[in-house]
Amino acid sequence: MERNLMIAGFGGQGVMTMGKLLAEATCEATDLNVSFFPSYGAAMRGGTANCFVVISDEEIGAPVSYALEDLVVMNGPSLHKFLPTLKAGGNLFINSTIVTDEITRDDVKVISAPVTQMALDINNPRALNVIMLGVYVGATDAVPADVIIKGIEHKFEKKPKLIQPNIDAFNMGLEIGKAQK
């Protein structure tokens, strides 16, 4: 089974970090194959950034897909640009604090969470991506939640103060994801 995900948003919302955290944690704590591919280029400030994560129990072909199972959009432009690449029946994750436009497709499952506002509410504005990762894992079971918790512990090994706040942020998202499963 292969599962592919695109995460898209503004530069600075942590979309690359979110993808990398998911992929790296999967590499460390499972036997699955996993790839991470960032978009890059002559990006402009305030423009869109995106990355792909593919997780599979078989060899992975292209690390890029335009027939997505899962799409995370953290801002409006990403919704319009990438919604057509989501497969029918796919999961669309919305940062509902910022993405307020109407979803123009009714053949996809929409899971929404106001992650920008939630991150501000817990005085950890940079954690919006970790909250969204929780929502994603909660709604899809793409990997077990423990895998990401271990990944967070490993990622912040040298900054132990940041471990608990990030785990808390992740768990907050996880509950929202599970509720919308």
Partner: peptide, 9 residues
């Protein structure tokens, strides 16, 4: 550039 940029185990 795909393999140069992508991450894998």
């Amino acid at each position: 550039g795909v393999m140069g940029t992508m991450m894998e185990p």
